[in-house]
Design a protein around this nucleic acid. Structure first.
Length: 567
RNA sequence: CGGGGUGUGGCGCAGUCCGGUUAGCGCGCAUGGUUUGGGACCAUGAGGUCGGAGGUUCAAAUCCUCUCACCCCGACCA
């Protein structure tokens, strides 16, 4: 491709909209252009990167036994009502009506349509297993799109769905996909971490995410420094600091004027924070919930949501709390009525806790479970933190930020049951198909790659996903052979099957070099009067500091080496 | 949805508080010329309903009201 002909050009200045590095670079390089919040056009350069990734994904899906198909974006809302997932998605679902006022949705994912399709073609265990996938545009009305391609409302996604006869089959499909995903990231040159993930209120038993570790990542990952344990903080478990049980003492009311926070209680009464009880109020699907946790810990809302099996969960407002006759800041589990009580496991050992008195300026000492209060649910609802113990090996947990670049789920049978996707097994018994689903957002992967591979000059593409592999950079001067040599090299490179961005513009060296760096093309080949004096060209890898002079007759060999090395 | 911010040629910004003639600067773009190893220089030129609607005024980018869009933080988020 001749750069002079390319649609799109680089920008010197950082667009004001962009805060994240990948967003800035995507805009400056002319790879994407914004149309609306969370909606982007891809220009040729950006589209090429996307296609590279798409091809790698397609190859790995096929290799794993997947079959590609096409599914509609436009889907009847009715289908979503059958599985009840219209409620689960809520406002995230883009909806519209046709001319006859039939409600439709723009598919945010395709389990419903595909499961329905599969139910028409799969009747026997002999028709299973099946791995079916699509690479298509999906729509989700995110509350807040952000970070360029990191979180958008319209996006291209690869989704594979597995259909198996039983759990063992699902496990096998699941493992195949884990391997296929690993291959994809390896081939893209992107190191990822496999972490346990929350499957949401709807998911089945297992779920994993692939995380690209990056400071700008919006997810927190908890991992063990000793063993392989790694989990999204939403899901992560941890061994908390133990507090030795104590002999229960009688309850005692104490005056605590103006004291409300755990910090203040601890200081005022001179008790450690892990001897206090923290009360947090939530509203779960309209019902007030009282969550109780040790004072030094924090509530993990995802865990709480799962424990409650609710769709909507938010922290209660002071008004909502007061309405129930409870004093926020001095809330007590004692004598609570008409409120669901969820108690974290940290609270059950008999420790003489300090809890709220349920009237202003009062706390109660020596509160113990279950002597003094009852719980509707006792479960782990605590947030794991770095420094705590690994739930597997007891080692020390660490924390880092990551970008979610893949998510796989064991769905189970709830969808096949809802949509009537049954098959007849060997014994003639009708059973629901066991499902899994496996997604990768392509655009996000592009952004994640840039977050991972860039410097202050621009992008540094790994060769397999670079829009072009070679940046051919002639520095023209009248009366020199530069133009002829460059043209010859261009033809030669293309004949080798390499993808070449030929900077045939009449620009100054500075402009060309800076654009080459900004665009992040892995290998730069410079031809100038200076190099021709020595019958050479200059080779420079974007990832390396130093350039190198290479005799002309050796260029092809050297480049072959670089290409092979980079896979 | 709550909090904060921004809308002025393709991009980045000044001008708005305190209304006043042809709305300015840098980049980019066009033409001509001089340049050519890390974002060159000179000259000439094109390009703007000042987000939108309404209002105040002799006069509005500037003041008032309403509204829209986008960004950031939070809530939210398969």
């Amino acid at each position: 491709m001749r750069l002079s002909q390319l649609f799109g050009k680089t920008q010197r200045e950082i667009p004001a909209e962009a805060d994240t590095i990948s967003h800035q670079l995507l805009l400056r390089t002319g790879m994407i252009s914004q149309v609306a919040a969370g909606v982007y056009s891809f220009l040729p350069l950006g589209w090429r990167v996307l296609k590279k990734i798409e091809n790698i994904i397609r190859e790995e899906m096929d290799k794993a036994g997947g079959q590609e198909l096409g599914l509609p974006v436009l889907q009847p809302l009715e289908l979503w009502q059958e599985t009840g997932r219209d409620r689960a998605f809520g406002k995230g679902l883009f909806t519209l009506s046709d001319r006859r006022d039939r409600p439709l949705v723009l598919g945010p994912t395709h389990e419903e349509v595909l499961t329905q399709l599969v139910s028409r073609y799969v009747q026997s265990y002999r028709d299973l297993p099946k791995l079916l996938y699509q690479i298509q545009t999906k729509f989700r009305d995110e509350p807040r799109p952000r970070g360029g391609l990191i979180r958008v409302r319209e996006f291209i996604m690869k989704d594979l769905y597995s259909f198996d006869a039983d759990e063992a089959g699902l496990d096998e499909s699941y493992n195949k996909m884990l391997q296929a995903y690993q291959n994809i990231y390896d081939r893209c040159g992107l190191p990822t971490l496999l972490v346990e993930a929350d499957s949401g209120a709807i998911g089945g038993k297992d779920s994993h995410e692939f995380m690209l570790i990056a400071e700008s990542g919006e997810d927190e990952v908890i991992y063990c420094e000793r063993c392989k344990y790694a989990a999204n903080v939403d899901k992560a478990e941890s061994v908390k600091e133990k507090v030795p049980p104590e002999e229960p003492l009688p309850l005692e009311e104490v005056a605590t004027p103006g004291v409300t926070t755990i910090e203040e209680v601890s200081a005022f009464l001179n008790v450690p924070r892990n001897h206090t009880l923290k009360a947090v109020f939530y509203v779960a699907d309209g019902e007030l919930v009282f969550a109780m946790i040790r004072g030094d810990l924090e509530v993990n809302e995802v865990k709480l949501k799962n424990a409650l099996h609710c769709v909507d969960l938010h922290m209660a407002t002071e008004a909502e709390v007061n309405q129930a006759g409870i004093v926020a800041g001095s809330a007590s589990p004692l004598g609570l009525k008409g409120v669901k009580v969820v108690v974290d496991e940290s609270v059950t050992p008999g420790i003489n806790f300090v809890a709220g008195g349920n009237k202003p300026d009062t706390h109660i000492k020596n509160v113990n479970y279950p002597r003094d209060f009852k719980a509707d649910i006792v479960v782990d609802i605590s947030r794991a933190r770095a420094g705590e113990g690994c739930p597997r090996c007891g080692g020390k947990l660490l924390s880092t930020q990551g970008i979610e670049v893949g998510h796989v789920f064991k769905l189970g049978t709830f969808l096949s049951e809802a949509l009537g996707a049954y098959f007849i097994d060997e014994k003639g018994v009708s059973r629901p198909i066991v499902m899994g689903c496996y997604g990768i957002g392509l655009g996000r992967l592009v952004a994640a790659a840039i977050e991972r591979y860039h410097d202050d000059k621009g992008i540094i593409w790994p060769i397999p996903i670079a829009p072009y592999q070679i940046y051919l950079c002639p520095l023209y001067r009248e009366g020199s052979q530069v133009a002829e040599v460059a043209e010859a090299l261009y033809a030669q490179f293309e004949a080798e099957g390499w993808e070449v961005l030929f900077d045939d513009r009449e620009e100054s060296p500075g402009v060309k070099f800076n654009d080459a760096d900004l665009l992040g093309i892995p290998i730069r080949v410079t031809v100038s009067p200076r190099t021709l004096e020595k019958d050479s060209v200059e080779l420079k890898q974007r990832s390396e500091k130093e350039a190198e002079l290479v005799p002309r007759e050796e260029v092809i060999t050297r480049l072959k080496g670089l290409m092979a090395h980079a896979g």
